[in-house]
Amino acid sequence: MNEQIDKELDRREFLARAGKAGISIAAAGIASYLLYDSTGPAASIEAQDPVTLPDFSVPQIPAQTMSVVKGYDRAKTVDKAIELLGGIERFVKLGETVAIKPNVAFASPPMLGATTRPELVAEVVRLCYSRAGAKQVYVTDNPINDPASCFALSGIGKAAGQAGAKVILPKDNFFKYTTLTGGKLIRNWPIFYEPFTKIDKLIGIAPVKHHHRSGASMTMKNWYGLLGGRRNIFHQDINTIIAELAMMVKPTLVILDGTQVMMTNGPTGGSISDLRRVDTLIASCDMVAADSYGCGLLGLKVTDLPYLTKAHEAGAGTTDFQSLKPILATVS
């Protein structure tokens, strides 16, 4: 120690030290220059790279847009309903990847009708694989209650898995921001996007349910499951959000299950006394038409559900389902 203090600084060491000091100062200066921010942070951060949900619809065939099948056995009625529209092959081609979006909102057993019936999901999965030759079928939703519990208790997770489909549960990084062109509410809003990037076709399957705020929850309301973030605030303007969902999502096919209709205490139900047998199942390429038919099963008129007219006016479909000449059939 003392030795060093006594020692004069020699030229070599001085130069070395000066060189190191110079490099350090230069590094600090360059770093400051590169990181220099003359404006400070902006007030809010706009979402980067908004995404748009692809269009999954198939070409129209006149008088083959909607079918209504009466019967109690959902596997049979859905088979018939799809067959009447030209068969599953019209919608799903060999080797395609399909997503099915049932209503899995609540952790509730299937018999209570608050969620899409598992046998219905399983049958559509089966059709996609065995009849159409789909490569992969996903079943997915972003439920209200705990997702894993919803898929387990509704029976959909098991039924889909047994039929060979893969269940996708929502993860934080599956949500991307979107802005709906012409939309008032869906602006810079996170949607459940990731599963829909890897598919060719999208099929929505929803039960007919009473819904105290909007009047009825059917195939259009089913897309509420695609909304992320604090989606509950949209209840302040429920009709507009449902109409915008119908504008945002362009499914290949929707299936509306009115075999047992939840007449009261919706959308959760909770008792089989809330359900009524109506024995009707609708398949449609036009979800506005499907829901316009479906509201009749609840004893409602189209004008009782303002979102139907809004969606109609926005061009998402027609409330005048009769103009589509729905194909009627009955299976026993």
Binding site: H212, R213, N265, T268, G269, G270, D274
Partner: peptide
């Protein structure tokens, strides 16, 4: 308008 609470109440 809102009633999200009513909608989600699981009791029947």
């Amino acid at each position: 308008p809102c009633i999200v609470c009513e909608e989600n109440c699981p009791v029947s």
